[in-house]
Design a protein around this nucleic acid. Structure first.
Lengths: 341, 341
DNA sequence: TTGTAGGCGTTATCAC
DNA sequence: GTGATAACGCCTACAA
């Protein structure tokens, strides 16, 4: 059913109906009633595709996340969806699978689909692509990570500080053999978390042998593998900082397999959602992020841009504070050896 | 940049370019090269909106999930996205927030947006709406739950059996005071899990006092509250079956608060993802679902319908087998009293 | 092989 | 206040 059909049914013109739907006040009350009644009766729903083509706006905000399976991004997507919805927008979710190619694919999709704006968690895709997008005037806000793209709004965690807090906590517990499972260094948060960690150790003159820095890819498996290596070192660490929750899961699994006792033999603090971490064995000491607030913020930033096309608006870089939640996976140092059997 | 612009640039007609893009073999090799080169050079991307309007198909599959934050649905969305992508489709994800109103909102969105097909995890929305959708010919497949809608493909877990397995496990451990935190009874899986549970107890002549059946809403909070009530019963249960993972989280939290020891004072088996459950304290005995397979299956079913518009295709009702994974949260009965302080 | 023209379902700009 | 009519960007007979 189209405007045309409905118009014929009511003996009015197409434009009258269209007007009734978009600017009711510009139509006579009597006809308005009549039209509205018919719309309801026939369950008429305007074709958004056609509308988008004509108005040249889709009222869609695209979001590209690395892993929709990760609770963090689930919350992000949900938060974005909520503010989008309450502003008459809908959300096109793209899962890029923590892969630059996936990000590019998603970006192209969003361009073709004429998304009004894009929220992106950069995975290292070709910057050129993003630059060319910016030229089209589509607003972008980066979330959780920053790609190096010039002049974009961004909302991130204070990752340096987060890592420092984690390291300081471990140092405060007397540890001096502290390792880390860092994230990919082509990601801004991976870098920041590592450098924050390094800074904290340096400040306290705690040595950091190269062996003690493992690099993962933010997926579970890599956390697992890293632990296997760390634990079979000649001088294994007594404490570990893991740079994201997925890898933390893998790490804990590996520690189980190696029968390494937490926190007796090894203290562990990780980036993680505040949700399951506290039910773990033992309850995990974590760095928590204000995830939902970050998602909302990103969406609001984007909508602000969308609503005031005056590009004059100054750039926003929102930095959210991390929180250290101390639970039972960290304890004062005891120089027991942890070695994988 | 549109076909028109590109055409002018190349001194060919719009249709030639259009053809080159959609049916390259129908265009002279020389011009094809020329056009393709220009397309690449200018980074031309066809406007999918216009294309959709013209071809009357959006190549979009809509999916409505109750809670994108829930790992289960995260995996579903990811799986659907993968098979969609490899078939040239994209996915419009709607989070309905475990609420019939949200489901209706999502459905309307998907209709307006002319989704090619819809995967839905019913939350109890007005069946009339779905019936009217079916009349438009848009294929639907129901996932995880069934709404009662006539003639739809569906992919679900064998929920009855799952609950029976859980209950049988508890009974086998010698428990005779077994409670359940059931899901909403307006959802098919909520009902099936409860009735499977009841059946198993009946078969073994284990009594089930009304007090022992708590109803939650599949959210964390309700699991928490249910435990508080169960635990302060005059004769508290010695074992509990929780009908989904969110409520299980809440339940475990509440048990912690009440200082009820698992499994010493209380055995607990729950529906849950296989992911974090094994790192819990204690590692959780669970009913696990082949989540990814279910997601893929739903997407494939939908695509099959989309590809063969011959509605003759017979109906599919795919039932997946649950798996009981025994870990440490269940143990032989010991009649210690669990009472909340 | 290529170009012309009509139309997909809207909205916006005009007259009336 | 209401009704023609021309786009929006693309695809697809059909004509050349």
């Amino acid at each position: 059913m189209t405007l045309f059909d409905l118009a014929r049914e009511l003996n009015v013109s197409i434009s009258t109906i269209s007007r009734t739907l978009s600017r009711p006040e510009m139509v006579a009350p009597t006809t308005r009633e009549k039209v509205l009644a018919a719309v309801k009766q026939f369950g008429f729903q305007p074709n958004e595709i056609a509308r988008s083509l004509r108005t040249r706006q889709t009222k869609t905000i695209g979001i590209i996340v690395p892993d929709i399976t990760n609770w963090f991004f689930g919350v992000i997507v949900k938060a974005v969806g909520e503010v989008a919805k309450s502003n008459g927008y809908s959300v096109l979710v793209c899962n890029a699978d923590e892969d630059p190619t996936g990000e590019e694919h998603a970006l192209n999709l969003l361009r073709e689909r004429k998304a009004s704006g894009i929220i992106n968690c950069p995975m290292g895709a070709n910057l050129k692509l993003w630059r060319s997008l910016k030229k089209t005037g589509i607003p972008v806000v980066e979330l959780d990570r920053i790609s190096g793209l010039e002049k974009v709004d961004a909302v991130v965690l204070d990752n340096e500080k987060a890592a420092e807090m984690a390291a300081a906590h471990l140092i405060g517990l007397g540890h001096s053999r502290i390792a880390t499972i860092a994230g990919p260094q082509h990601l801004s948060n991976g870098r920041a978390r590592l450098s924050g960690f390094q800074n904290a150790l340096r400040k306290s003159s705690v040595p950091l042998p190269p062996d003690y820095v493992e690099f993962g890819d933010f997926r579970e498996r890599s956390g697992h593998d890293a632990i296997k290596r760390l634990v079979s070192l000649r001088d294994p660490p007594t404490a570990i900082f893991v740079a994201n929750s997925e890898m933390a899961g893998g790490a804990i699994g590996a520690l189980r397999e190696c029968k390494v006792k937490i926190p007796t033999q090894l203290s562990i603090v990780a980036f993680a959602d505040a949700r399951w971490a506290r039910y773990l064995d033992p309850p995990l000491t974590v760095i928590a992020e204000p995830t939902e607030a970050m998602g909302r913020c990103a969406a609001e930033l984007l909508l602000a841009r969308l609503n005031s096309r005056s590009a004059s608006h100054k750039l926003h870089m929102e930095v959210f504070p991390p929180e250290l939640i101390v639970r039972k996976s960290t304890a004062p140092v005891r120089l027991a050896k942890a070695r994988c059997t």
